[in-house]
Amino acid sequence: MLQQRIEYRYNSADVGLLGSLKAYKKLIKTSADAKAFMKWLTEIRKLAPSSKKRYLAILQTLRRDLFGDIKVRAGQKPKAKPFTKVEVTQILNHLKEDKHYSHYHDFILLLFNTGTRTSEAIGLLWRDVDLVKRELHIYETLGRYKGQTNVRERRTTKNTKYRVVPVNNAVYKMLIRRPKGKVEDLVFNSPTGLCIDDHNVSQRCWKITLKTLGIPHRNLYQTRHTFASHCIDSGMTIQETAAITGHNIKVLYEHYLGSVKKPTLPEL
C-alpha cells in the first residue's frame, strides 16, 4: 500500500516509513504487533517524536484497524516567524540590484505576494495568468519527481483543488513587464531557460540574500506563511485567506492566527 502511494505521489515520509518496515523484518498482524513496531522505531531506530508521529499518521491512514488506538506525544517546536513588511522590502530591493540573483526577483516577489506553494509558482504557465481580471488560476504544480530537485512532473495541487488567486499592484506590474511567451510556456524559469530548481534557489540565492541583509534565516517556504499571516493581520477572515492560499481552515487557525500581530492585553 505504501509502494502504491509512493508511485502515485512521491513523499519522503512514505519512503522513510517503507524503509523502516523493511528493516523491521516482522509481520504486523495485530494491534500488539503495531505497538511493538512503534516501540522499535523509538528504541532501535532512535526516531524523533515528530518523525514518529508523522509515520503514525501514515500508518493510521493505511491500517486504522491496527494503528488507530496508538498515540504519539511530540512537543511543539517554536513556530518560524513570518517576515515583516520591512524585511520583505529589504529582500526584494536587494534582489532587484543583485548582480548574481536578480533573475529570481520576480519569482520571489510572486511568492511573497500571493502565498502560492513553491511548486505552484514554478509550474505557473502563461495560460493561467489573466491580466485583464488580475488573477492567477492555480490547479497544477510542477513537483519534484521522486524527490529529485532537478526533475519535475506536472500534477494537481496538494489538495487537488482549483483556486483563483487575485494579484495586487506589485504582482500585476511585475507580470506586465515580463516578456510574454506562448500560453504553454512557464512564467518563471532558470537563467538557462529550464524550470526553476527550488533547492538551488534556496541554498544559494535565498540563503546568501538573508545572510547579506542580516535577516534571521527562515526557509523559502516561509514566504507562504508570511503572506497568510499578513492577510489575517490586515483584517481578512480565515475563510477568505484559505480560499486564496488553499490552506485547510483548521491549519490557519492553529498556525497563523496572531502570528504577526499580537493581542494587546488590558491593564488591570
Rank of each mutant, 00 (worst) to 15 (best):
Q148E: 15
V129A: 09
H137Q: 15
V129G: 03
G143P: 04
K133R: 10
L131Y: 13
D130S: 04
E135S: 08
L131W: 07
R117Y: 11
G123H: 03
R117Q: 06
R127E: 14
L124R: 00
G147P: 09
I138K: 02
G123Y: 01
E140R: 14
R144P: 00
H137G: 10
R134K: 15
L125R: 12
T141C: 10
K146R: 14
L124P: 00
T116R: 07
L131F: 10
L124V: 05
W126F: 05
T118K: 05
T118M: 05
G143N: 12
H137C: 01
E120P: 05
L131Q: 05
Y145K: 15
G123L: 02
S119N: 15
Y139D: 00
L125G: 02
I138V: 14
L136T: 00
L142I: 07
V129I: 12
E120T: 11
W126V: 02
R134A: 07
Q148D: 14
G123K: 00
L142D: 01
R117F: 07
D128T: 05
L125C: 09
D130K: 04
K146F: 15
L125F: 13
S119H: 07
E140C: 08
E135H: 08
L125I: 05
G123C: 05
R144K: 14
T141E: 06
T116I: 13
L136E: 01
I122V: 15
V132D: 15
I138E: 02
I122Q: 00
E120F: 06
I138F: 12
I122A: 03
D128R: 04
T116L: 15
V129Y: 04
Y139Q: 09
T116D: 13
D130C: 04
T141G: 01
S119F: 08
Q148W: 11
G147S: 13
V132M: 11
D128K: 07
V132F: 13
Q148I: 14
Y139S: 03
T118D: 06
T118V: 15
V129K: 02
V129L: 11
T141Q: 08
R127D: 15
E135Y: 04
Y139N: 01
R144D: 04
L131T: 09
D130Y: 06
K133C: 10
V129Q: 03
D128F: 08
L124I: 15
S119Y: 04
E135T: 08
E120Y: 10
Y139V: 00
